[in-house]
């Protein structure tokens, strides 16, 4: 699903955020991305979302070399990837329903089909009774779930999440991670950046650790941590 080949990213005037990173994530995997801030987690996700382009190396997502996705084709590319964010990035002047519907409206889906899918997604995150509320009236955990509903509403094959539990207490964090696990069970590939080591260990999934832009550890799901060389 995701293949990085000797990917380096250097920001203008800055140090190297990623250097010579090579890794593969198979279809259907649920992978955590960890590391200190500045280790390159966000940069890696930005490369996948085509917010940034690699300085060197190749990023291949779903069989598609991202270098070949022109600026004009970025919207279509992003429509096939679900994204969830630490600050959930909801539109505060729109209802839960409208927020979740946004990707489908953008994709030009019909009204009836949109409503059906949006309700299904909101139901999956357990907020069906709150579809008409504005995000500000929801708790932080609920806001995050709305963000996740929006990320999955267009049924993407790949979902990337940047610190989705960064603002949540452990209990809510676990709830969110369980939600992600359920999506994974129906075949969605997930890449979740997080530094909540406790929680990740508890979930026992594959974990990729970055340190100063390089691969530090890559532990297989359920297995012991094995050091990469």
């Amino acid at each position: 699903m995701i293949r990085l080949e000797r990917v380096s990213k250097r920001y203008p005037g800055g140090s190297e955020a990623l250097s010579e990173l090579t890794l593969t994530i198979e279809k259907g995997e649920m992978v955590f991305l960890t590391g200190h801030s500045g280790a390159g987690k966000s940069t890696l996700l930005k490369l996948l979302a085509l917010i940034e382009r690699p300085t060197r190396g190749q990023v291949i997502v779903n069989g598609q070399n991202t270098a070949k996705v022109s600026r004009r084709k970025i919207p279509a590319y992003r429509q096939r990837i679900g994204m969830a964010f630490q600050d959930h990035k909801l539109l505060l002047d729109r209802t839960v329903f409208d927020n979740v519907a946004l990707p489908l409206v953008i994709a030009g889906m019909g009204r009836r089909e949109t409503a059906r899918r949006v309700r299904a997604a909101i139901d999956q995150v357990g907020l069906l009774s709150k579809e008409k509320l504005l995000p500000m009236t929801l708790s932080t955990g609920e806001q995050q779930r709305v963000g996740i509903a929006r990320a999955v509403v267009s049924k993407p094959d790949l979902l990337i999440a940047d610190e989705p539990t960064g603002n949540l207490d452990p209990e809510l964090s676990l709830e969110i991670m369980n939600l992600f696990s359920r999506f994974n069970e129906v075949g969605v590939t997930l890449l979740i950046a997080s530094h909540d080591i406790e929680l990740i260990r508890h979930l026992g999934r594959r974990r990729i650790s970055l340190h100063e832009g390089r691969l530090q550890d890559d532990s297989e799901a359920g297995g012991e941590i094995c050091r990469a060389d």
Binding site: R78, L90, I106
Partner: peptide
Amino acid sequence: RQEIEVAKLVGASDAF
């Protein structure tokens, strides 16, 4: 700006 950035993140084209 914020709204535009969010729309771009979820795949809105410039034309949209």
